[in-house]
């Protein structure tokens, strides 16, 4: 009975990597053409790419890998949340923005991208350490 959490087949990782390269391309294009460091344009496809990369099966996918991936997610999600809370606080402590008529905050895609990049790094660290 094999019923693992990570649903996508292993080759989805390469699809995710392609999407990630495309995201970086968009970021570079926006910066070089318009001088804008467009994190939203980068993070929207990057978030999906990280979902494919992180949730695709490893080459050797066993119960220990599933546990380590879960542990890594459990660590990465609050750490990414804390990073964004601190970032938002550091920008918003100067006050309400009259120009944008809003408080500064990050998009869900930015949070998801950071959380999954952190989870990916923590997973490989745990895999190496254990």
């Amino acid at each position: 009975m094999r019923n693992y959490v990570f649903h996508y087949p292993h080759y989805f990782r390469y699809f995710g990597l392609t999407l990630l390269v495309l995201s970086v391309g968009i970021l570079i294009y926006r910066f070089t053409s318009f001088g804008i460091f467009d994190l939203t344009a980068f993070c929207t496809p990057a978030a999906f790419s990280m979902v494919f990369i992180y949730f695709s099966k490893e080459k050797q996918n066993d119960e220990r890998v599933v546990l380590l991936k879960f542990k890594a997610l459990a660590l990465a999600i609050p750490i990414a949340g804390l990073i964004f809370v601190l970032l938002d606080f550091s920008v918003n402590r100067t006050g309400y923005s009259i120009e944008t008529d809003s408080w500064y905050s990050h998009s869900a895609f930015e949070y998801l991208t950071l959380a999954l990049i952190l989870a990916f790094a923590i997973f490989h660290f745990l895999k190496f350490r254990e």
């Binding site: 009975m1 066993d62 119960e63 220990r64 895999k127 254990e130």
Partner: peptide
């Protein structure tokens, strides 16, 4: 048993508890 060598190593060292099936 259908797992990776690192999993066996982790079980031997007591760092990972195997499932009932394993």
């Amino acid at each position: 048993v259908g797992v990776s060598r690192q999993t066996i190593n982790s079980i031997e060292k007591g760092r990972f508890v195997p499932s009932t099936i394993l």
